[in-house]
């Protein structure tokens, strides 16, 4: 599948998606509420992007962006980056852990580090930090005067 064919296929399912081809891989930008249906489409036939190899979040100070790196184990040449912006003050997005089980742990990490709330996540608790930890360490405005080293 070429990038063009992928784009056509995705546009048929998610017309509002925007594309960015400047990077190494094709990047698809969607609204946060359209992410889950599109992820399901990509996971299913014929794309079969069954391997979520990276899930993370980026803090752009004005908003948070969820980033999903997808590939297919049957066709390793397809690599797609899926992105969705979420509101920084009230970050809510649907979980993808029912499609890719690895997302369960990765989303828990994002939950504690960025405070993104994943709807319908089976077990959304802190994984690495203590239960009573305040704040979201990987957000840009997080300050810890004792433990952080700044240049």
């Amino acid at each position: 599948m070429t990038n063009l064919a992928i784009k056509e296929y995705i546009t048929a399912h998610a017309p509002e998606a925007t594309y960015d081809e400047t990077g190494e891989w094709l990047t698809i930008m969607v609204e946060s509420n359209h992410l889950k249906p599109l992820a399901a489409v990509l996971h299913g036939q014929p794309m079969q992007l069954d391997f979520l190899f990276c899930l993370t979040c980026v803090d752009y100070k004005t908003h948070l962006t969820m980033v999903y790196h997808l590939t297919s184990t049957s066709n390793r040449n397809i690599n797609i980056v899926l992105k969705a912006n979420v509101d920084r003050a009230d970050p809510i997005i649907e979980t993808v852990s029912d499609l890719w089980r690895t997302a369960e742990f990765l989303e828990r990490e994002v939950f504690e580090m960025f405070g993104v709330d994943f709807l319908h996540h089976p077990d959304l608790r802190k994984l690495i930090l203590e239960e009573d930890f305040k704040g979201y360490p990987l957000r840009k405005d997080f300050e810890d005067p004792i433990n952080m080293i700044k240049l």
């Binding site: 069954d50 190899f53 184990t73 890719w100 089980r101 690895t102």
Partner: peptide, 8 residues
Amino acid sequence: DAISYGCT
């Protein structure tokens, strides 16, 4: 399962 759990 290995694929779904992202095992490598």
